[in-house]
């Protein structure tokens, strides 16, 4: 993923864009960070989002957008280096530490992030949050998975189906 050209000839100062959350909060952020979003990248390349205009994001509330931008700002430098092939081990370890801490959050926030990462098409964030949920499932029984993911308690039919599955495929439950 290439960073957008800063074609405004404005050397020195990074180009900024404004994003507007669903509850009308304005966020000013470097174009390079916002461009981690495939959805925003085209608009930004077309010169949108600058000045007083701002890009409205009707599906993302301010709490979620602020979290999303925290991720983008942290990851933008590495992404600008084309996935940072020349990043040092220290840089990579730091990003990893950041990522681990970043997804250490409430499930409702995680859910909002999954939706936002999907709508904004931020590949790295999509992957990060999906992996987090996958890890939450790890080593749990079907019933524990249901509780973890916020399912209602199973109906008698569902319970019977789960029992049948366990009998049939017993070796996954040892």
């Amino acid at each position: 993923m290439a960073a957008p050209e800063s074609g405004d000839g404005n050397n020195g100062a990074a180009r900024m864009v404004t994003l507007i959350s669903s509850d009308n909060t304005r966020f000013e952020v470097e174009a390079a960070a916002a461009s981690l979003s495939q959805t925003l990248q085209l608009t930004i390349l077309d010169g949108g989002g600058g000045g007083g205009d701002g890009i409205p994001l009707p599906n993302v509330d301010s709490a979620t957008l602020s979290k999303v931008l925290e991720y983008c700002i942290k990851h933008a430098p590495a992404a600008a280096n084309g996935g940072a092939p020349n990043a040092t081990a220290v840089d990579r370890a730091e990003l990893e530490r950041f990522d681990n801490e970043f997804v250490n959050i409430d499930q409702s926030v995680l859910y909002s992030l999954i939706m936002a990462a999907h709508n904004l098409e931020i590949e790295g964030l999509q992957s990060l949050v999906a992996k987090k949920v996958a890890d939450m499932i790890k080593g749990k029984s079907p019933m524990e998975i249901r509780r973890t993911l916020g399912f209602p308690d199973p109906t008698p039919e569902e319970q019977a189906e789960m029992n049948a599955h366990m009998l049939e495929y017993g070796w996954a439950y040892e």
Partner: peptide, 23 residues
């Protein structure tokens, strides 16, 4: 989105348990 999560489940046994969670 669920499939993007399932594809990241590390072991087949975990995947199998997830498949037993609901229809």
């Amino acid at each position: 989105l669920l499939q993007e999560i399932f594809i990241r489940i590390a072991t087949p046994a975990d995947l199998d348990r997830a498949s037993a969670t609901c229809a």
